[in-house]
C-alpha cells in the first residue's frame, strides 16, 4: 500500500482548506470567517492558520489558484489560435468557477491590498494575451481598428454584465454554459471587419 508522505498530507490539507474556503466565501460573502472555513474543511481552526496565517493569505491563495489556471490556458491560446477559440477558452475557464469569479468581481474594493493586487495581476495577464491576439488580428485586417483596451473592456463589460445578472440570463445556474456561443458570435460580429 502506498504511504502518504508528510509533504503530501500537508499539500492535501492545504487543498482541502482552499476548496472549503472557495465554498464558504462564495456562499457567505467577504464577511465569512476562517472558523467557518475550518469547519467546512473538517480541520481545526489552528490548522487553517498554519497554512494561511492571515485572511489575506487565504484569499490571495484562492485568487492565485484561479489566476494560474486561467493564465496557463490563455498563454497557450493567444499565439496561433483564432479569436473565437480564445474567447471560448476564456468563458470556459470562468464558467468552471463562476461563483468564485463573481465573488472577486463584487468584492474587489473590499479585498485586502495583497489579494486585490493579485486579482489585478490576473486581469492584467488576461488583458496582455487579449491585446496580443487582437493586435495581430487588427494588423491582418480581420478586426476593426479600435484601441485594444477598448476591445478588451467591451468584452469584459459583456462578460461581467451577464455574470452579475445571471439570475435573469440563466436562472438555472451557469450563465456561460448556456450563453457562451451567443456571447462569442455576437461579439465577433461587432468587432470583425466585413470581408
Amino acid at each position: 500500500m502506498a504511504t502518504i508522505t508528510r509533504a503530501e498530507q500537508k499539500s492535501e490539507t492545504r487543498r482541502r482548506i482552499l476548496d472549503a474556503a472557495e465554498s464558504v466565501f462564495t456562499e457567505k460573502g467577504i464577511t465569512a470567517t476562517t472558523a467557518e472555513v475550518a469547519t467546512a474543511a473538517g480541520v481545526s481552526h489552528g490548522s487553517v492558520f498554519v497554512h494561511f496565517p492571515t485572511l489575506a493569505n487565504l484569499l490571495t491563495a484562492l485568487a492565485v489558484r484561479f489566476g494560474t489556471r486561467l493564465g496557463d490556458m490563455l498563454h497557450t491560446l493567444s499565439e496561433g489560435n483564432s479569436v473565437e477559440d480564445f474567447l471560448y477558452a476564456h468563458l470556459s475557464i470562468l464558467g468552471e468557477d463562476e461563483d468564485l469569479y463573481l465573488f472577486f468581481l463584487r468584492n474587489r474594493k473590499l479585498l485586502p491590498p495583497d489579494t486585490a493586487a493579485d486579482w489585478l495581476a490576473m486581469q492584467s495577464e488576461t488583458a496582455f494575451h487579449f491585446a496580443k491576439m487582437m493586435q495581430r488580428e487588427i494588423d491582418a485586417g480581420r478586426v476593426k481598428d479600435v484601441p485594444v483596451y477598448f476591445l478588451f473592456n467591451s468584452w469584459m463589460g459583456i462578460v461581467h454584465y451577464y455574470l452579475e445578472n445571471r439570475d435573469l440570463f440563466a436562472p438555472e445556474g451557469n450563465v456561460f454554459a448556456r450563453r457562451k456561443s451567443e456571447l462569442i458570435s455576437s461579439y465577433l460580429h461587432l468587432i470583425q471587419k466585413e470581408i
Binding site: S124, Y149, N153
Partner: peptide
Amino acid sequence: RFLVETQGFDEEAAVQAAVAMMRK
C-alpha cells in the same frame, strides 16, 4: 504604460496599480 494601453486605465490609477503589483 502597459496598463494604460491594454486596459485604458487613468494614468495615475495605472501608476498605483503598477506599484501594488510590483510590491509582491
